[in-house]
Design a protein around this nucleic acid. Structure first.
Length: 733
RNA sequence: GGACGGUUAGCUCAGCGGUAGAGCAUUCGCCUUACACGCGAAGGGUCGCAGGUUCAAAUCCUGCACCGUCCACCA
């Protein structure tokens, strides 16, 4: 053994050695006989490579997997990747853009083929990266959220919901990304603070007696989007607002459009904001569409799916971008003397969480999943303790959202994803469409369609058309929600559903965890996992979010290259004390590398002392020494002390792992090995020659390797192999 | 606007009722035959601020300040 530990000479070799042991099997004892332990890897998006957040997640999961495997559980870690709809589509689009090609140039079929090529490439890269980190996943069970078997489940789920009346189609105002050309769910919106103006606009009141005669009276509304006034259908005030009490029911003239619109009373209006009077644009604002529904207001679609003004906006505005229209509207109003004032204003602009474009609330046909009953189930499971969220305070995040959850818009107008199992009749379309403008050619609610897992052989409506499958795809999270069971074999479901624990980051508690819970309850009649561990978020040293686009990300693989995988795992866990966010500090990785080296040299010392002459595998000399009995009659105080400490440490580590206290556990092992074992006992042992001390040294090292193996698997395996000859990964804990 | 968390050595963090700790960095000795990715020693903190509870507070309570994360249909 050379004096310095070299991870590069070890890791790849050791990983190959391990692979046969990743399949579920029960090793050793009778104690845990029949017990199973399973974790599902949160499937990384195939958009690129892994980041520190993945490294943390993978390390935590691997600790639990390796620990339970050693304890004799039939253990499995299910890996896989996620097709990640919009995210992946955008990455591929950006890539194509470099060649000057858009997805429209290619067309749907060719484009999705490109995405599949991307998937093959990056899916493999991601799996390679997971292996580098030492993840002991069962690769024979790797899944992708668009595998055929998985896709079957997705269709089955959709049909299941539809048949129970949970899925409906509706024309609603949804958040629309004009760049991605698709709808988004509430959770896919990212708010960014923006400095803008608040325009106070005077809407002339029509007097009671002389209709349409303008007088000096106005009602003033405040808005951040003056261009949407072209689509106003009313002005709303709060019914309790004394200022406007006697105006309710009267009408105003909508400037520019010269349309008479009513003043309505609605509780959604906040009296304290602006003037307390709000313009209502039912087709371009979600809140306004609800007010519109309550007061039966018409919807004027003045902006199209590309963020440009429609004919409905008026001749002067048609074809303009919204911001251009804004300037023109303001100029026009100023000319008319209808701008009361303009204030500086900061508000949160809704943007696309994938491409960052400002969202446009837009009226369109979409598919929704009714959340009421599903939310009820989820709440019950969480409140009753069937699912525990750790740490507990994150339970509130889930409950809060679930308690006021809105129906989930599950359709997306992109190309990459699971197409809806909906088939349209090509011939039967009824002619009722309230809106001239249509988002997609499936727009007419009067179309005839069938929801079915397979395309019907014969169209049930016209009896002779070749039915056309919906072009929409499902929200990527619809399929991720099925991850704990979709695509699993019957046997695996029997053995490993529910899984043991879900380990994930806090930012997808609602996006993913909540949806897995109700999906599990709905399709498997049981919660998908009894515990959810919400781990820390790794931030930069300055406390900023790690992000590729900001250039603040740290590449785990670069660190592995520099320090070795064990050192990275050590560094991550060393810093992850609770669930408090981590301000990344490479110094902890340095500590990890030093510690690995220390351990290596302890092994070298023990090897020398115990006369293990042939360090190369297979070497049974160590095995022989360690199997010898310690002579109790010859025990010295120092022996008793160190053996006692080692025993106590083992108990503490078991407790820590059970409580998911990985950081504190690692610190304890570190302290014991460095300060008790090496600094004290090894130094004392140098003055002794008795047989006992050799056996004890072997025992201490053997036990230390076991305790450490889940945390830093490569070096512990390598040492164990060299000194004791057998596989540590399946050594009984 | 709401919720949650943080504020302890130069940096990143433990400690969470009883005389301030770790890693990294710094200084001074040591290549002492397991390890210089090391060994031995040293310096460095009125534990965010202001009150309160207590024999005793970094640790409990209240208020404030600053930082961070998440949630939110105030136009």
């Amino acid at each position: 053994m050379s004096p310095a530990y070299d991870p590069k000479a070890t890791e790849e070799k050791i990983y190959k050695f391990w692979e046969p042991y990743f399949a579920p099997m029960a090793v050793g004892t009778t104690k845990s006989k029949g017990k199973t332990y399973a974790i599902h890897l949160p499937p990384p998006n195939i958009t690129g490579s892994l980041h520190m957040g993945h490294a943390l997640n993978v390390t935590l999961s691997d600790i639990l997997i390796r620990y339970h495997r050693m304890r004799g559980y039939k253990t499995v870690w299910f890996p896989g990747t996620d097709h990640a709809g919009i995210a992946t589509q955008n990455v591929v689009e950006k890539n194509l853009k470099k060649e000057g090609i858009s997805r429209w140039d290619l067309g749907r079929e060719k484009f999705t083929k490109k995405v599949w090529e991307w998937k093959e490439k990056y899916g493999d890269i991601i799996i390679g990266q997971l292996k580098k980190l030492g993840a002991s996943c069962d690769w024979s069970r790797t899944r992708f959220t668009m595998d055929p078997a998985y896709a079957e489940w997705v269709k089955k789920a959709f049909v299941h919901y539809y048949e129970r009346g949970f899925i409906y189609r509706g024309k609603r105002v949804v958040s629309w990304c004009p760049r991605c050309q698709t709808s988004l769910s509430d959770l896919e919106i990212e708010y960014k603070e923006e400095s803008t103006k608040l325009w106070y606009i005077k809407y002339p009141l029509i007097s009671n007696q002389e209709s349409r005669i303008r007088n000096q009276e106005y009602i003033i509304v405040a808005t951040t989007r003056p261009e949407t006034m072209l689509g106003d259908a009313a002005v709303a005030v709060n019914p309790d607002d004394k200022r406007y009490k006697n105006l309710t029911g009267r009408k105003v003239v909508l400037p520019i459009q010269n349309r008479e619109i009513p003043i309505v009373a609605d509780r959604a209006v906040e009296m304290s904001f602006g003037t307390g009077a709000v313009k209502v644009t039912p087709a371009h604002d979600i809140l306004d569409s609800e007010i519109g529904e309550r007061h039966k207001l018409p919807q004027f679609q003045i902006i199209n799916e590309r963020g440009k003004m429609t004919a409905e906006a008026g001749k002067d505005f048609e074809g303009l971008k919204t911001l251009e229209a804004r300037e023109r509207v303001v100029a026009e109003l100023e000319k008319l003397g209808l701008i009361e004032k303009i204030e500086d204003y900061k508000h949160n602009l809704a943007t696309c969480y994938r491409c960052g474009a400002a969202l446009e609330p837009l009226l369109s046909d979409q598919w929704f999943l009714k959340m009421e009953k599903l939310a009820e189930k989820t709440l019950k499971a969480v409140k009753s303790g069937k699912i525990k969220i750790i740490p507990e305070n994150f339970e509130k995040v889930l409950l809060d959202w679930m308690e006021k959850v809105r129906d989930w818009c599950i359709s997306r107008q992109i190309w990459w994803g699971h197409q809806l199992p909906v088939y349209f009749c090509k011939n039967k379309q009824e002619e009722i469409s309230n809106f001239k403008f249509q988002i997609s050619n499936e727009n007419s609610s009067a179309e005839k369609y069938v929801v079915a897992a397979e395309k019907p052989k014969q169209c049930p409506f016209c009896k002779n058309c070749d039915m056309k499958q919906s072009e929409d795809v499902l929200d990527t999270w619809f399929s991720s929600a099925l991850w704990p069971f979709a695509g699993l074999s019957q046997n695996d479901l029997k053995d490993f559903y529910p899984s043991s624990v879900l380990i994930t980051a806090r930012d997808i508690i609602n996006l993913w965890v909540a949806r897995m819970i109700f999906s599990g309850l709905e399709f498997m009649k049981e919660v998908p996992f009894p515990e959810t561990l919400i781990h820390a978020t790794i931030l930069t040293k300055e406390g900023k979010r790690m992000s590729k686009s900001l250039g603040t990300g740290i590449d785990p693989l670069g660190l592995i290259e520099k320090y070795g995988a064990d050192a990275i795992r050590f560094g991550i866990i060393w810093q992850t004390m609770g669930t408090q966010d981590v301000h990344w500090d490479e110094a902890a990785v340095v500590a990890g590398r030093k510690f690995a080296n220390k351990l290596w040299n302890i092994a070298r010392f023990v090897q020398g002392q115990t006369g293990i002459s042939n360090p190369e595998f297979p070497c049974l000399a160590g095995r022989q020494v360690i199997s010898k009995q310690i002579s109790n009659s010859e025990l010295q105080d120092e022996d008793r002390e160190i053996l006692g400490k080692s025993e106590k440490l083992k108990t503490e580590i078991e407790k820590d792992i059970k409580n998911y206290e990985f950081g504190p556990a690692l610190h304890k092992i570190y302290d014991f090995i460095w300060h008790d074992f090496a600094d004290q006992y090894i130094e004392l042992s140098k003055n002794r020659t008795d047989e006992n001390v050799k056996i004890i040294l072997c025992h201490l090292l053997g036990d230390s390797l076991k305790l450490l193996h889940p945390f830093i698997p490569f070096i512990t395996e390598e040492i164990h192999r060299r000194l004791f000859g057998n596989a540590l990964i399946v050594e009984q804990w």
